[in-house]
Design a protein around this nucleic acid. Structure first.
Lengths: 220, 220
DNA sequence: GCTGTTCAGTTGCATAAGCAACGAAAGGTC
DNA sequence: GACCTTTCGTTGCTTATGCAACTGAACAGC
């Protein structure tokens, strides 16, 4: 069955046997819903009480900023999860929207049922909570890392912080980054052309080497 | 008993009766340890498998940056918790240190025992996990909010993002901020004097009013 | 009253960075 | 081969920002 494929690969259901999923899902009281492009499973200001899991299609997490421009915070695809932190923290007014880009099918897990162990205290339910905790804790670490980068005042410092983080992660001096220049500039919150200029300066000073997405950190 | 006072006030033990705490603690297998000023319960590079809870004293979460300067990420006092995200996410090498500033007593809760429901499946254990999940999810939201601020390119935008967040939080146009100018500049990752200049410009343009820590947002 | 300290606003200056516009290389399509 | 698109590097210009140094006000200790 299609749905089980998505779930059994998901970190949220790690260590839970595929055979146990159907009873877990009914224990949780999940609902599934389809959305057409442009429809929003979550609107800014909504109270989020469910964790969303993308079964198919693509969606964007967006935010309307002060000038009224809509910015994309992240892209969601099959297997991706959204709303977990909002739901767990009990936030009453979502700061973001989620909007379908294509036809989507989304499964919603009521957070109260996820977090509250069921009467039958099923073992996989306990695993699910552990997985959710780890998932959110990992996101926490990612966010902290991003803050470490954005805390830097200059573009050069931001680049070095990001690149040395990547080097640490891969354990190598040479590594591929998962971004185009445009995307990297967005991630670092700097102007693309200014970043490009800085990258070349750093190359000329012998700090780094690069070619497309392949970077080498020469001193650090 | 002193320790129970700290714990029963703590979010981590919310909704858990004070009378149930002793058995919960023994169920968790906590350890307590004293530290003298300068000693570090956590060192950069350590694997963190325990959640730390400050019973008394003060400590700093610090980090040594690329130039070797030690920077203070946050201050810990009685009742504060540290290491929860690192432990839950299973990070093998801590990016931060925790260092006692005064004589400290710290209680450590092994994360595996916290997260794994005990054989006796005690009800308060389940509550503890829920509380931990909410705690980490709330931190997640805080971090995201900070990123929203740091994403802004100009000092003015950072200030407006921060101030309107505070206004939303308090629900009023006039509010107190919990920072001195120095601290605010640190929080926004901008230069203090440049920030001061920008604040005054915004005042002169009729965007805001302020006096010490009392701010009023005039348009938004 | 004197002194030291902290906190916040002010100013001058050098420079980093945003922005816009252009150009070159690579790849894809017909 | 001609054309389009995407991706990056390049450049000129303007402005915002970091940095350092100074000022004044408020406060505390002696």
């Amino acid at each position: 069955m299609e749905v089980l494929d998505v779930l059994s690969d998901n970190i949220l259901f790690a260590r839970i046997s595929r055979d146990d999923l159907p009873s877990l899902l009914s224990c949780l009281g999940v609902r599934k819903k389809r959305f057409s492009p442009g429809e929003s499973p979550v609107l800014m200001g909504d109270e989020v009480r469910e964790l969303g899991l993308m079964l198919s299609g693509e969606a964007h997490i967006t935010k309307t900023d002060d000038e009224g421009t809509r910015i994309i915070l992240s892209e969601l695809g099959r297997g991706d999860i959204f709303g977990e932190a909002l739901a767990c923290a009990g936030i009453e007014s979502s700061p973001v929207s989620v909007t379908a880009q294509t036809d989507c099918e989304i499964m919603f897990l009521p957070i109260r049922r996820v977090v509250t162990s069921c009467a039958s205290a099923c073992a996989f339910h306990v695993l699910l909570i552990e997985n959710l905790l780890r998932l959110i804790a990992e996101k926490n670490i990612l966010l902290s890392g991003r803050i470490d980068i954005l805390s830097k005042k200059t573009t050069r410092e931001k680049l070095l912080q990001y690149l040395s983080g990547q080097a640490d992660k891969t354990g190598k001096g040479t590594f591929l980054i998962p971004f185009s220049r445009d995307e990297l500039a967005d991630y670092l919150c700097v102007n693309r052309s200014a970043m490009s200029r800085e990258l070349c300066r750093m190359r000329d000073e012998g700090l780094i080497k690069f070619e497309r997405s392949r970077f080498t950190l020469l001193k650090y």
